[in-house]
Design a protein around this nucleic acid. Structure first.
Length: 1131
RNA sequence: GCGCGCAUAGCUCAGUUGGUUAGAGCGCCACCCUGAUAAGGUGGAGGUCCUAAGUUCGAAUCUUAGUGCGCGCACCA
């Protein structure tokens, strides 16, 4: 027996009950158990960073990550889902710093690295719990107990193994490079991280004079005009660069008093900027300027090195700096065409220096000039500016230039500039630094090849965003001079500087002379609760030393760096298992992933880091690189095959979601108000997942009545009547499991579909059509169109099948075969729908299944819908003709209603006749046999399909362009003209009689068959008619006494039904009705249709006049007053 | 500056390989139903498919250019 169903359902409450059920009965575990040994569908969880609270955008990611694994599990695959947490790196350190109210590295050091690390792990742990709660609440089934965590020792050792592999192959190297440097944080950032922090800012932009020197080293009176937006780099100026082939002009600015050299193309622009006339004195090419010496804007280095010369490779002496150099990259897009070179603060400038150095004999060339310390403050070499943050000095530097007459012009320059992605107020600077790099550029082509094999959704990511990113690949800046991260596993000989990589703690312990474990032992003794994973983190790991294999007596010490946390997450395909130290079997079984999904911002993040690491480590079988010990062959793509790239979710205001703007609602509040299913359905059904999605609370709310509640009402309807009628499938069908058609058909009263009514066969056909479509779409990762198909089916079920079936369920005879057919049909539809929606809205699906299957078959039915097989549709049950026909019926009814509205004829008033004119008469014979349905819906006595309908309509005959276009192409307009000129009715008559006709088009005959022409109908004015795409419906509005009387009767029924509702009748209550009116017509109708009124209203007594002790309902029927008395009759 | 994407009804969004009358939901207006009922349903109004040029017999759809928005990239000196 089914449990009674509340008709005022609260989805959030229902969901919490389901969550308990899943947990208590371990349904997720059982869903995997059922598929043990089956083919795998491999899913990788991109680890969320555990350093902040989740917002609705994260809910979308988790919902999509749940949808496809659930679906594939129901389709028979084994899909294990291991949770994961990204726990290292800058984000965490920054969060902890905020908490401690500190910022710089000095402050962290002063606080103490050891307690700082302890804070980091605490912070991560806290956020992980928040995320776990959201994960469970949204119904994301994932194994949280065995989550991989990037700070775990086993995980780190996997990463170490990978790094050792790269190191041993010469792919991990230390280089002196200009990096994007976070001065306050004291570390370099990867290009991926830098990319996350670009912001538009206004910087000072200065035009500075560099006075040229003559042969004697005296000022010549002419200056180079140089532009920069970073005045703070001027003290470190080393060269000025010009394009050798560019034209330059010597100009005079009379007012400012001086001769200047500017690119010819920019003279006018600069004159306009300063608002003065620049008189051109002469022209020259850049080549002619090359080699000239100038006076730099600051003397800090110049005073000691200005006259210094070095021996060039040509054997001659050359000045080592402050000369004009040729450079191809100089353009006239902006500035002056002469570029200030501070090699310490620009990658290109630095390469200019290297090039220049190569022109000198060893040790003779220019050294790098850098007046800025790693903390971003000027060094003692910058005199007055010493100790000050460089960006703060821009103003004073400009002032100094002005005082000395070197500032020619100053303005604000609006441009994008990178800031630290985690410390938003810290601008990054380019800075020379020795750091560790992975030689990814060497594998650029392989990465591109690998990427090309990935099935990206949407497709354009492949060659677009991802492809372009790979095309501009640079070596991965891996090291971070920070604290909370995977330590770089490289130990260096303190004597020779030689290095080696270590792949595990075990390997380290086996080194001769291994020592330095005291720090950890002591910490653990003082804080026994400390996680053992900290043992291989800073600062403890830094204490570990061992005997150098490179020099007797020397010790090996670890380099101090930790690594980019993106490398951590990118290593998860193997590191989640601890591969290769442990977990080789799991890795072999679960590599590569069939499916991953994250938001668009992960293109340069997790998508890239995975792809890069995998390509470098595992290569491609086809390209001959020996794969590591894997059970699967290693063809591209790996480590993932299908990737859904989610669009970013914007806040309600169209802006990026941000905590400070509060332009979104906390996920928990959404769950409490609307429920997880409502949110999920909104995600899946509102738009394809890769579109930028604007958070809309209203749309989430709407998914309840539009879908969830609509289905719930059908379900509630079924249960209400099944209980009333004692419909009890379990009494008839014994051994069931998934309640499939085959299983249900054991029941005695279950009749095969072909014996059931047209309506039953229709909805079963729709059901199977829907299931087949959803299966095909979901196999192709198309959740949007799947949801649309399901929604359409539920609409058909609710608004046509149930509505059209109601009177069957009201029949007295509980064993009426047609009634039982209805129950079986609706039961099957609901059971199958529950399975279809299970991956999408798992809570509602489960609630329905629990009642319709489990409560009814407690011993036999599978205990959760999520253990069932996904319904793929039975082709034999699909009847496309029937679908088309029923669609036509629905259109006719819809047009009939429109015609009634137009004629102001309410549906309660029966009409004698409607006439239907079809544009295409293919289905007319069938319709003729099924007119009762139409008659009933439209409340008419007779439905006629009219062929000779000229009085009602005009025909327009149109060519079927889609058919004819390819065939006759350019002749189409002439054909359209010819058809337009001809008499439509005559053409149709001809077509009707001959099956084809021939028209003269462009002087040539053209034979058309019936398929080539389409008919459009238009209702003539003057009739109560409405026209749709494929039919015109004409009402006969003439009434006779009989029709009017029946109309009265229906009015009476309406009034009585309302009264039933007013006195809160149960569905099955019998009533006594008294009607009191002076209107003879109504009285007559009451007598004439007494039986009808009684049966419609469940009235056992129908009398004229008042009922004792009952207060009447006063209504007007037409012009007459009617007093209605209703009371429940005790059985 | 370069690249990727987006632009359709008041709002949120669909629109399948180019095809005749461009759809849905919400909102609005008018109604219906009353044995799923603090539900349900029907109809209507509402659209220069961002602009312009082009390709084509035919363009919301394809091409090019432009405008606006989002995102990304970086030799922004």
């Amino acid at each position: 027996m089914f449990d009674p169903v509340s008709n005022s359902v609260k989805f959030p409450d229902l969901e919490s009950r389901i969550l308990r059920l899943w947990k208590e009965r371990r349904i997720y575990e059982k869903s995997l158990e059922r598929r043990r040994g089956a083919e795998r569908f491999v899913f990788y969880e991109g680890p969320p960073t555990a350093n902040g609270l989740p917002h609705p955008g994260h809910c979308l990611t988790r919902a999509i990550k749940d949808l496809f694994p659930r679906y594939r599990t129901m389709r028979g695959f084994l899909c294990e889902r291991k949770a994961g947490w990204d726990t290292h790196g800058l984000p965490v350190e920054v969060e902890v710093c905020k908490e401690l109210g500190i910022h710089s590295k000095e402050e962290i050091e002063a606080y103490g690295v050891e307690p700082f690390i302890h804070k980091c792990i605490e912070s991560v742990f806290r956020y992980m719990q928040q995320w776990e709660r959201m994960t469970e609440r949204i119904g994301f089934w994932v194994n949280l107990e065995e989550a991989y965590v990037t700070y775990h020792q086993s995980y780190i050792e996997s990463v170490w193994w990978a790094l050792k592999n790269l190191f041993d192959r010469g792919l991990l190297y230390q280089g002196y490079k200009i990096v994007w440097w976070w001065a306050q944080g004291g570390t370099a950032l990867s290009s991926g991280e830098v990319g996350q922090g670009y912001r538009e800012v206004a910087d000072p932009s200065v035009y500075v004079k560099f006075p040229l020197l003559d042969d004697q080293g005296k000022e010549s009176g002419t200056s180079l005009l140089v532009w920069t937006t970073t005045p703070w780099t001027l003290p470190s100026n080393q060269f000025a660069a010009v394009h050798p082939d560019l034209e330059y002009s010597l100009v005079e600015d009379a007012e400012h008093g001086g001769k200047l050299i500017i690119a010819k193309a920019l003279v006018e622009t600069i004159a306009a900027k300063v608002g003065r006339t620049l008189t051109v004195l002469s022209q020259m090419t850049g080549r002619m300027l090359v080699g000239q010496r100038y006076l730099p804007p600051f003397h800090y280095y110049y005073q000691s090195l200005g006259d210094k010369q070095g021996v060039g490779r040509d054997g001659d002496p050359h000045y080592i700096a402050w000369r004009v150099l040729p450079a191809e990259f100089v353009t006239t897009d902006s500035g002056t065409g002469i570029v200030h070179q501070a090699p310490a603060f620009g990658e290109v400038d630095f390469s200019v220096l290297l090039e220049e150095q190569s022109q000198f004999a060893a040790g003779e060339g220019p050294e790098l000039i850098c007046a800025v310390a790693p903390d971003g403050k000027f060094t003692a070499e910058a005199g007055d500016f010493q100790g000050r943050w460089v960006k703060d000095c821009d103003r004073d530097i400009t002032r100094s230039l002005r005082h000395r007459g070197l500032l020619y012009h100053q303005e604000q320059y609006l441009h994008e500039y990178p800031f630290c992605w985690r410390a938003e107020n810290d601008p990054l600077i380019q800075y020379p630094r020795r750091s560790w790099f992975i030689r990814t550029t060497q594998f650029q082509q392989q990465m591109l090849d690998n990427n090309r094999q990935v099935h990206w959704l949407p497709e354009h990511i492949r060659d677009g965003r991802m492809g372009n990113f790979l095309e501009t690949n640079v070596d991965w800046a891996l090291s971070r001079e920070r604290y909370w991260g995977t330590p770089l596993p490289i130990w260096q000989c303190e004597q020779t500087g030689q290095q080696e990589a270590v792949a595990s703690y075990e390997a380290l312990r086996n080194k001769p002379g291994f020592a330095g474990t005291e720090a950890w032992t002591k910490a653990k003794a003082a804080h026994p609760e400390l996680s053992d994973d900290l043992k291989i983190h800073k600062p403890y790991i830094d204490e570990i030393t061992y005997d150098s294999p490179f020099a007797p007596g020397a010790r090996m010490r670890r380099v101090p760096d930790v690594i980019d946390c993106w490398f951590d997450s990118g290593a998860m395909p193997f590191a989640q298992w601890g591969f290769p130290h442990i977990g080789a079997e799991q890795f072999g079984e679960q590599f590569p992933a069939d499916f991953i999904s994250e938001a668009l911002d992960q293109t340069r993040g997790w998508f890239y880091s995975q792809l890069a690491i995998s390509t470098l480590l595992f290569g491609d079988k086809a390209q001959g690189q020996p794969p590591l010990a894997l059970t699967r062959s290693l063809d591209f793509p790996h480590p993932f095959k299908h990737c859904i790239v989610l669009g970013l979710m914007l806040g309600e205001d169209g802006q990026k979601m941000s905590k400070s703007k509060r332009n979104y609602r906390e996920p928990n509040e959404i769950f409490d108000r609307y429920g997880a299913d409502a949110l999920r359905w909104y995600f899946f059904a509102q738009q394809p997942p890769w579109t930028t999605i604007r958070y809309s609370e209203q749309a989430i709310k709407d998914s309840i009545p539009e879908f969830l509640l609509r289905l719930w009402n059908v379900y509630a309807f079924f249960v209400i009547y099944a209980r009333i009628d004692g419909f009890d499938p379990a009494a008839e069908a014994g051994s069931v499991e998934q309640l499939t058609t085959a299983e249900l058909s054991q029941a005695g009263s279950y009749r095969p579909a072909n014996l059931r009514s047209e309506l039953d066969r229709w909805i079963l056909s729709e059901l199977n059509r829907c299931a087949a479509a959803v299966t095909e779409l979901m196999d192709a990762f198309d959740n949007y169109n799947s949801a649309a198909a399901i929604s359409e089916f539920v609409d058909a079920l609710s608004n046509w099948y149930v509505r059209r079936s109601r009177d069957r369920f009201w029949r007295e005879d509980q064993r009426d075969p047609d009634k039982l057919d209805g129950y079986w049909t609706l039961y099957e539809c609901l059971l199958t729908t529950s399975k279809l929606i299970a991956p999408f809205v798992p809570f509602l699906a489960e609630a329905i299944w629990q009642n319709l299957a489990v409560a009814e078959f407690p011993k036999n039915a599978l205990e959760s819908v999520h253990l069932c097989d996904f319904p793929t549709g039975d082709a034999a049950a699909i009847d496309r003709d029937l679908s088309a026909r029923m669609a036509l019926v629905r259109e006719i009814v819809s047009q009939g209603r429109a015609a009634r509205v137009g004629a102001k004829m309410k549906v309660r008033q029966p009409l004698a006749k409607v006439e239907v004119i079809l544009a295409d008469r293919t289905h007319q014979p069938w319709l003729t046999e099924h007119v009762t349905l139409i008659a009933d819906e439209l409340n008419v006595k007779q439905v006629e399909f009219t062929q000779q309908a000229d009085q009602y309509i005009t025909y327009t005959v149109l060519p079927d362009l889609k058919r004819l276009g390819p065939r006759i192409g350019k002749r189409l307009p002439a054909l359209q003209q010819a058809i337009g000129d001809a008499d439509a009715a005559a053409l149709l008559a001809k077509m009707e009689s001959d099956g084809h006709l021939t028209l003269t088009v462009d002087g040539e005959p053209l034979r058309l068959d019936s398929q080539d022409l389409k008919v459009r109908l238009q209702a003539r004015p003057g009739w109560a008619a409405a026209q749709g795409k494929s039919c015109v419906v004409v009402l006969s509005t003439e009434l006779n006494d009989n029709l009017i009387a029946e109309g009265w009767a229906r009015e009476i029924v309406h009034v009585v039904q309302t009264a039933r509702k007013d006195i809160n009748c149960q569905y099955t209550d019998r009533i006594a009705v008294g009607l009191d009116t002076d209107d003879a017509n109504i009285l007559a109708a009451m007598v004439q249709f007494a039986d009808y009124i009684r049966s419609e209203t469940l009235a056992s007594e129908l009398t004229r006049g008042p009922l004792k002790g009952v207060s009447p309902t006063e209504t007007n029927v037409g012009a007459a007053a009617l007093r209605t008395y209703v009371k429940v009759v005790k059985p």
